[in-house]
């Protein structure tokens, strides 16, 4: 083909690809056109065109960089948030869907709205503690540990949570603060004195508060586990059973937990680990650490995605589904 025609064709394709939003493909065409213009500069002698193509290449590169740097988790409209809340809750029990809907908002990065939903759910006795923990988790995910601690203190100062619930929350948050090296000791709510019932026997009613032990014994779970049975996992230790790091043991903090799915953030520098932990990989040797105990168990890599923006850009977000704990 005639050189001039070939260059013209490349430029026309570049424009068409650009109009389709295929910026990388458009860039490739401009680069090829630019090379040909340079190579045959003596024959063609169109320096203005070469300058124009260089300008297009520059603009396209800037546009691609801008799009790549755009946040993955922008706040969306309230209508879209409502869809996330209503349509991404799949629990069979209708009453559990409200909590799951709020958790779905977190998974789509809608933290402010999620926290509003969790605050509302705190008004429902059955969700109070889970909702409170999830508010703390939102603050932790946003790297706002001061806010998490302030939130705990606010609950400590008012009567929203019982002493037992506050203590569970304290154990949960304190372990996170300790792990992050934050020197803050959360206040402990002393249990209220047990009041002997004054009502007649056999009515089965106690008008005093029943004091539960601070840490309930964790039930040993055998095979399949339900969302409700999962306790809070603060960190995990995984023994790699394949890949170049076979036999190596790695420990990671849990950045977020939704039922039996835990989320870990893996540093981009740990390439071997990122490659080994492929989606679908079964992890046969996992130690799950909770604030109160350690369990052995198994999990499966549920999803893995690269974080494209924000302070953890380049790192990987890994979801592990807990399959068994014993």
């Amino acid at each position: 083909m005639d050189i001039k025609k070939e260059i013209k064709s490349l430029l026309r394709h570049a424009e068409l690809y650009k109009s389709q939003g295929l910026l990388n493909e458009a860039l490739e065409q401009y680069i090829q056109a630019g090379r040909m213009l340079k190579k045959h500069a003596a024959r063609i002698g169109n320096t203005k065109l070469l300058q124009a193509v260089a300008g297009r290449i520059r603009d396209l590169k800037a546009e691609i960089a801008r799009i790549d740097a755009s946040p993955d988790m922008s706040e969306v409209t309230e209508k879209a948030q409502n869809i996330i809340k209503e349509k991404f809750a799949f629990a069979e029990k209708e009453e559990s869907r409200d909590l799951e809907g709020a958790v779905a908002l977190v998974r789509f990065g809608q933290f402010e709205r999620a926290m509003r939903e969790f605050r509302q759910l705190m008004g429902r006795e059955e969700f109070k503690l889970d909702a409170a923990k999830n508010i703390i988790r939102c603050h932790v995910t946003l790297d706002a540990l001061d806010d998490a601690a302030a939130q705990y203190r606010e609950w400590f100062d008012n009567e929203v949570l019982s002493a037992e619930e506050l203590n569970k929350l304290r154990v949960f948050l304190q372990s996170i603060l300790d792990k992050k090296g934050i020197r803050e000791t959360l206040p402990v709510r002393e249990p209220a004195p047990t009041v002997r019932p004054t009502v007649v026997e056999d009515q089965g009613v106690m008008d005093g508060e029943i004091i539960m032990p601070e840490l309930v014994e964790v039930e040993v779970v055998g095979e399949e586990i339900s969302e409700e049975e999962i306790i809070d996992i603060s960190s995990v230790e995984i023994t790699l059973e394949e890949g170049p790091g076979k036999g190596r043991t790695v420990e990671y903090d849990v950045s977020f937990q939704s039922g039996r799915v835990i989320n870990l953030l893996i540093s981009s520098s740990d390439k071997t680990l990122i490659e080994t932990l492929r989606t679908g990989l079964e992890l046969k040797k996992v130690h799950f650490y909770s604030p109160i105990a350690m369990f052995n168990g198994e999990g499966v890599v549920f999803s893995k995605s690269r974080i494209e923006s924000g302070p953890k850009q380049g790192d990987y977000s890994l979801d592990i589904q807990i399959q068994h704990i014993r």
Partner: peptide
């Protein structure tokens, strides 16, 4: 999101 790309 930017560039008419679907975010979610």
């Amino acid at each position: 999101t930017d560039g008419d790309r679907t975010l979610f």
